[in-house]
Design a protein around this nucleic acid. Structure first.
Length: 576
DNA sequence: GCCGTTTTCGGCCCGACTGTTTTCAGTCG
């Protein structure tokens, strides 16, 4: 899919235009277009020109550039821009504290085009000769260079959220905070996040700032103001805090939850209605009369909008939907009736079947699918036909003792490199549920991998495709797969697609979840739990589903046990 | 460069913090 390549180019063009000192609104248009292409969930190379210009933020010109790229593999306007502004300057923009103006000055004066050169000049104290740069700025630039050399760009949600919760717990215990929330992309449950945002009220903001700057785990204090501070943790992740008045709390929470694009839409709406929206509240323009801001709900109400849940705040159509009173009623954690992807100690999990049954009870589930690996996955002690039979007997006997809940006999079966499965149909038909996943041959071509998965879906006994892209956030890229084709085949064959809730997977990835929903594909949220602590990851899966606009009815494991078994059976019957 | 219940031109979100400025520009979110 070319979406990421094109959005990267548009972002780079925006950077170059910025250094050039071009029209800021033109720059914003490029960034907005880049963002919308990245989160589109549909392959731009399959769209007509009309469909391209239907994408918000894409007009005639940018649609033309997209088509040019698809046809020729390049964009003339981008090449011309690179002739005017050396490409290396873009990397300098990544240094914290360095913006387009300074980068342009550096280039005009010293012809600096890379970080090493910048570092050398800073060490020689040559930067102070530039206008607007003093000793402190020069030192900050050196620090910034060190930082980007160490830090990774984004952090997986599952790593950042526990950290953020530790911080809020610390602040609640060690400083005079009143209201306190995690905001930012964490509150929106984005799968990776850039930094942690905290928002609070306090009768004594100064003490909160001090406690925040002195928390354990702080490596460096970047900014410490009276109401706003930023630190870097030893993990390399930046944390920002802002303390506001109680009457402004909702406005501030909304503002710092973002996304930025969503906020801009709200502010534009406010301006058009003769109002002004900022992090302190929503005000009537002509006399600054306060109209709301103590709660987020007030803000949306004053703007004439339905309340938009944080997971939807991406300017991806939610503002229009909220204005038309047509936001979807999103899946809730309480709608989940069971877990459809769980491993026991029969393969590579560390819980025995009794412990799974106990966890099923604790989670309040009606069912839990025991989906151990199949024989092809030797490293995970995958089960052969013989051990499957033995495990089945153990599950059956356990189920006879369970009241009101049931362990489902399942398997996570390998999709082999030729698209065949580890068991033949005679064995497959004996399972309640079959999750089929790719665990090998990640380097195959897109056509091969897509073909494998589609072939597996055509098997009438395959209920769900597990972790469909194979990605591990921050560790391993997704394998090449034509997800649109996979989703089309899922709709056609009646196969569900998994939303794997393991925090490093969160796979199906979010842009495709919406596409899946639009195609009428059913999603199955599973935790892929291997130990007891992982069942709670269901919450991540639910959040990602919500970000994909899923309703209860889009999700397989919101069904009761009977309905679930009937739905799983319907694909099999269809073939007969 | 995009966009339109202000509709094909003229707008386009708003404020905190810092450093190097004697009143504000640059950066960031």
């Amino acid at each position: 899919m070319k979406n990421l390549e094109i959005s990267a180019i548009f972002n780079k063009m925006a950077d170059l235009l910025e250094i050039k000192g071009d029209n800021p609104f033109r720059i914003r248009a490029y960034r907005k277009a880049a963002f919308n292409i990245e989160s589109l969930g549909r392959d731009v190379s399959l769209l007509s020109k009309e469909e391209l210009t239907d994408i918000p933020g894409i007009g005639e010109d940018l649609a033309g550039k997209i088509e040019e790229y698809l046809a020729t593999g390049g964009i003339g306007g981008y090449d011309r821009l690179k002739e005017q502004v050396p490409e290396g300057l873009v990397t300098l923009l990544g240094v914290p504290g360095l913006g387009p103006k300074t980068v342009a000055h550096l280039y005009d004066r010293y012809r600096v085009t890379d970080i090493d050169e910048l570092e050398r000049l800073a060490r020689e104290h040559r930067l102070v000769e530039l206008p607007g740069i003093g000793e402190k700025t020069e030192a900050d630039i050196l620090k910034g260079i060190g930082m980007i050399r160490r830090a990774s760009a984004r952090y997986p949600l599952g790593q950042a959220l526990p950290l953020a919760r530790e911080i809020t717990a610390y602040l609640a215990g060690q400083s005079p905070v009143g209201l306190l929330d995690i905001a930012g992309s964490l509150r929106r449950w984005k799968d990776t996040i850039g930094d942690i945002d905290i928002i609070a009220t306090s009768a004594d903001p100064g003490s909160v700032m001090t406690a925040f700057a002195h928390m354990p785990g702080v490596r460096e204090v970047l900014i410490k103001g009276p109401t706003k501070s930023s630190v870097v943790l030893k993990e390399g992740i930046q944390v920002d805090i802002r303390v506001v008045d109680e009457e402004s709390y909702g406005a501030a929470l909304a503002y710092f939850t973002g996304s930025k694009a969503h906020n801009i839409r709200l502010r534009e709406m406010a301006v058009k209605a003769g109002m002004k929206l900022n992090e302190y509240g929503i005000f009537r323009e002509r006399d600054d009369r306060r109209l709301g801001g103590k709660t987020e709900e007030e803000i949306y109400e004053v703007l004439g909008l339905q309340y938009v849940p944080p997971e939807l705040r991406e300017d991806a159509g939610e503002v229009e939907a909220a204005a038309g009173n047509s936001l979807p009623l999103l899946l809730e954690a309480a709608d989940i009736r069971g877990d459809l992807h769980v491993h026991s100690d029969w393969s590579d999990g560390n819980m025995n079947l009794e412990e799974l049954a106990m966890s099923m009870r604790e989670m309040g589930y009606r069912y839990m699918a025991v989906t151990d690996h199949s024989k092809g996955l030797g490293v995970a002690r995958g089960l052969n036909e013989e051990r499957i039979l033995a495990q089945r007997a153990a599950i059956d006997s356990l189920n006879r003792k369970l009241k009101g809940a049931r362990l489902l006999a399942g398997v996570e079966i390998n999709i082999r490199s030729d698209g065949s499965l580890d068991f033949d149909e005679e064995v497959l038909k004996t399972f309640d549920i079959v999750v089929a996943s790719v665990h090998s041959g990640f380097k195959q071509s897109k056509a091969q991998i897509t073909g494998r998965i589609v072939k597996a879906m055509k098997n009438p006994y395959v209920s769900v495709i597990g972790h469909p892209s194979g990605r591990l956030l921050g560790e391993r890229e997704a394998y090449e797969v034509d997800m649109e084709e996979v989703l089309a085949a899922a709709a056609e064959t009646g196969t569900a697609i998994e939303i794997n809730a393991y925090p490093l997977r969160l796979d199906l990835a979010e842009p495709y979840i919406r596409t899946a929903r639009e195609k009428g594909v059913t999603l199955a949220v599973g935790t892929d739990s291997h130990n007891r602590g992982q069942f709670a990851n269901m919450r991540y899966g639910v959040a990602i589903a919500r970000r994909g606009w899923l309703r209860k009815t889009d999700v397989l494991n919101t069904l009761g046990l009977k309905e679930l078994l009937s739905r799983l059976g319907s694909k099999r019957r269809k073939r007969i």
